[in-house]
Amino acid sequence: METQVQPVFRTEGLTRIYTSGEVAVRALDGVDLTLEAGAFTVLLGASGSGKSTLLNILGGLDRATAGRVWFRDTEITGASDAALTRFRRDHVGFVFQFYNLIASLTARENVQLVTDVARNPMPPEEALDLVDMGHRIDHFPAQLSGGEQQRVAIARAIAKRPDVLLCDEPTGALDSRTGVRVLEALAAVNDRFGTTTVVITHNAAIRAMAHRVIRFADGRVAEVTENARRLPPSAIDW
């Protein structure tokens, strides 16, 4: 395992409380965590354990109720909406369970959406080649299978050479064979560019490919394990 000294994300007493009506739900309850650069981290946990909330706050989509978050040396808690937008644009790539491609744009154009505004992007074709989608570059989302759409979504997320790649259930809507191809794409990006990658999953089998596995329960970190030996995605099956 590589040893990285510099943390990409650091949280201190991170707490997020959702209030709906008279019920207050403590989605995160004082999380202290450090994510190191280049690491491939898997977040596990039951529904409502707080892992998605953590991911959203790290990615600048949501705000903490209490506690602090740093991206590298910059504190992002309390940043303005414009600053968070800037942060997402420059540093973060997202991949969701439901691919969220723009239906009216082709695979290439969906990637271009990001490369047009990023500082140092790779050509859209290169990003699509990386996820093995070079041959379907001019297809619209409706003409692609679920796995193909997710790979375009990954290409779109990595094309700007993000510092972190945040993936929320990237294989949740896919069958095992297609899911493996998506995981291979993620692993390739992590290996090749050293992109810090955080993957949320319900699928415990995926933990085998991570450097580190963090298990969540009731809004807290319940357990952190380091994998001494990682399996390639092709060896994973579910």
Partner: peptide, 14 residues
């Protein structure tokens, strides 16, 4: 709504 939210997440400003 979904596409516009996607754009926001990709870092497009309001």
């Amino acid at each position: 709504a979904r596409e516009l939210a996607s754009l926001r997440i990709l870092g497009f400003s309001r």
